[in-house]
Write a protein that binds this DNA or RNA. Structure first.
Length: 282
DNA sequence: TGATATGTTATCTT
DNA sequence: CAAGATAACATATC
């Protein structure tokens, strides 16, 4: 479920509650998501929480880290006797007593609070990974679209090399980090460019508009705490975001295009639901 | 029952 | 190798 803005939101929410605390034990409720040995992190202190692309990095003492990917349905939920905060895929687990049937890991902290990792579809993972392995891996990743390294020159040069539909190019995590389906659809509508248009055929003017639209759309998502598409949970305090209230086309089939009032349509592109305006997105 | 789901990667085919 | 389609991971919901 979560895209970059959702992951960023979880990261910044979690950080003040877990930094400085020690992991006293790790409960493994399902073996699949954990890569590494949970014994290696018992007794370590959480020193920072940061984000790279769509992963949450929990920095630990002893030069170790937990790298968390929520994929489609992951959640990170922090529970103490006075707080319950978190985020990720909106499900009833947000409001249930934890652990739930989807809880895969529970990190018990030394103030008796707990950080839960839930994941209904088991696509997500948590890796125990030393800093000297992680940082070279990160160095090989392309820039995230919110990084200063994501320049127009970089974007322009990538498009020249790609004949794939522009939507596929901007969502390709090997080319740029952080653009998922919601924000890809919205940025393309904002830029009035067809998702099917081959990347290399975009004009200079279109590239400039799209470059800015991607950055603006993702930043809007971050500002609003990400999107919570399940209407049942949009009001759950400490979890939900509100990007869905300003979403231009995602999940808006039949609604009026914000550019030209034409009804938004939905089709498949590369296996993903793709929302677009058939009139103004050329 | 079948289609769909905010992610990523592998594997086919052309 | 490029590009496009499809499948795979595994589960819940409409």
């Amino acid at each position: 479920m979560p895209e970059l803005p959702e992951v960023e939101t979880i990261t910044t929410r979690l950080k003040p509650f877990v930094v400085g605390k020690k992991i006293t034990s790790v409960d493994l409720l399902h073996p699949r998501p954990l890569q590494g040995n949970q014994q290696d992190i018992v007794g370590l202190e959480i020193t920072d929480v940061t984000r790279r692309a769509k992963t949450v990095r929990i920095h630990l003492s002893k030069q170790l880290n937990l790298l968390v990917h929520l994929k489609m349905t992951g959640q990170l939920i922090y529970v103490s006797d006075k707080q319950k905060i978190g985020g990720g895929h909106p499900t009833g687990d947000w409001i249930s007593e934890l652990p739930t049937k989807h809880t895969r890991l529970a990190f018990k902290l030394d103030d008796l609070s707990t950080l839960y990792f839930n994941d209904q579809r088991l696509f997500g993972w948590i890796k125990v990974i030393p800093t000297n392995v992680l940082e070279p891996m990160f160095a090989k990743l392309p820039p995230d679209v919110v990084d200063p390294e994501f320049t127009f020159e970089y974007f322009d040069q990538i498009l020249n090399r790609k004949g794939v539909p522009i939507k596929v190019a901007i969502m390709d995590s090997a080319l740029m980090g952080g653009v998922g389906n919601i924000y890809a659809c919205d940025a393309l509508n904002k830029a009035k460019i067809s998702p099917w248009k081959p990347a290399k055929t975009l004009t200079e003017a279109e590239r400039k508009v799209l470059y800015q639209a991607i950055i603006d759309t993702i930043n809007m998502g971050i500002r609003l705490g990400g999107a919570t598409t399940d209407g049942k949970y949009v009001d759950v305090s400490g979890f939900a975001g509100s990007y869905q209230t300003v979403s231009r086309v995602y999940d808006k089939a039949g609604a009026a295009c914000q550019n030209c009032r034409t009804p938004i349509e939905k089709e498949k592109l590369a296996g993903r639901g793709t929302y677009f305006c058939p009139s103004c997105q050329k």
